[in-house]
């Protein structure tokens, strides 16, 4: 067991974890943040994607102990208790989700991409090569991210207004 301290969605947690515990299991089972999903545990499907110190990474390919001293953002941390982000709104407008299982991982990867500038459509498609969605055929997801990219999206790590 190793003691770790992790800031998740702005909240500090100190927990003792088994060294082999995956970050996904830590987030879901220890912290109750079940928005981060597990789809393959070998890095292909992308639904476990979270941001580690701002960078989108596969949650299933990180050990919880590796996050010691880091900041983690999960899908729950995007809008917090405030209104949906522009990206989330774009997903809703474009019907870019059906079952919604792959959605959190895609949102986290896309927020990271958008924080680095305005991606081209090809860059969005390329980003999505790392995410399996079996419901939508991807086109509405590309449309949603493209629309969010075109809008004036505030950097994801800036605080957002509380409430409505």
């Amino acid at each position: 067991m190793t003691e770790i301290e992790v800031v998740v969605n702005g909240q500090r947690h100190r927990e003792a974890v088994e060294d082999r515990l995956l970050l996904t299991d830590f987030l879901r089972q220890r912290l109750g943040l079940t928005g981060t999903h597990v789809g393959c545990e070998h890095g292909v499907c992308g639904c476990c994607t979270v941001r580690l110190d701002g960078v989108a990474v596969r949650g299933c390919l990180l050990l919880a102990v590796q996050a010691d001293g880091c900041e983690v953002q999960t899908v729950e941390g995007l809008a917090g208790s405030g209104p949906l982000t522009a990206l989330q709104e774009a997903f809703r407008r474009h019907f870019a989700l059906q079952c919604g299982f792959c959605t959190p991982g895609i949102l986290m990867a896309a927020e990271d991409l958008l924080s680095r500038g305005t991606p081209t459509r090809d860059e969005i498609v390329d980003l999505l090569s790392g995410h399996l969605c079996r419901c939508t055929g991807y086109a509405p997801i590309v449309d949603a991210i493209e629309e969010a990219a075109a809008g004036a999206l505030p950097p994801a790590d800036e605080p957002r207004p509380e409430g409505t």
Partner: peptide, 21 residues
């Protein structure tokens, strides 16, 4: 009419309730 989905807000916030949740 293509009204917004009732399902979406919870899913987009990571508040869906799937089996393992």
């Amino acid at each position: 009419q293509s009204v917004p989905r009732l399902e979406d807000e919870a899913l987009l916030r990571g508040r869906g309730r799937f089996m393992d949740d």
